[in-house]
Amino acid sequence: MQQVLARPMVALNDVTMAFGDFVAVEGVNIDVADGEFLAVVGPTGCGKSTILNAIAGLLEPRKGEVHIDGRRVSGVQRNVGYLFQQDALLPWKTALENIELGLQFRGMSSEERRARSLEWLAKVGLKHFGDRYPHQLSGGQRKRVQMAQALIIDPSVILMDEPFSALDIHTRHLMQNELLRLWHERPRAVVLITHDLEEAIALGDRVIVLAAGPRSRVIDSFPIELDRPRDVAEIKLHPKFTELYRRIWASLRGEVEKSYARHE
């Protein structure tokens, strides 16, 4: 899947994210090619999420620049899909109303967006759940709605912040496969933040390792040469997977230990 393009889809150049005196990440350089699935791993509290928020335009970098498709990011971006860790659905809207929000904000007519969101509802396997409110759906179903909601606007970049960490292991595998299926249908640049190394390897084309925070930076990058399409539950048994896991963990482990030492 990895294509080498002259211009990456997402580019972070020497980005520093800080809040007051606290420097979360410093001097980060990351390029993501179009159609590339990048997984970012790092210990908890290393500022992984701030990187995503910088790409989405929710936060302004203290230093450095973020570009999406060659355009400098300033203010909230409208061509990104963002999958949040928390429940980010609007609780007062039904599944269908949630899915069509992005189109509604873009001023699409109500018949057209209804048709499109019904399509997406079926695509994520929730055909008969359109009129349910989020609190009436299970955790997995809510994630499906969130995926449809984020993808319906056909974003050029997908950002994911530990999207499946709140789900039980079986639901998580289901969702990960679901995500891979949707991404295969229309591959585009993905930045997945996770602390779960297995998830990072099973999903990603490339895994980069962040150092323990504060002043976190990229310390390693590993290409994941596993065949696609992948089944996330089965791929973990692949000898190549185990080998990659061992190599990346050797790099990550020290950072996790450092992070623990700092927080205790």
Partner: peptide, 21 residues
Amino acid sequence: NPAVLANARILGADSAALLRH
């Protein structure tokens, strides 16, 4: 909920839409 707010902004809500939705 800040996550809901951030989500709506990324989905393209302007201030009027944020107020209403």
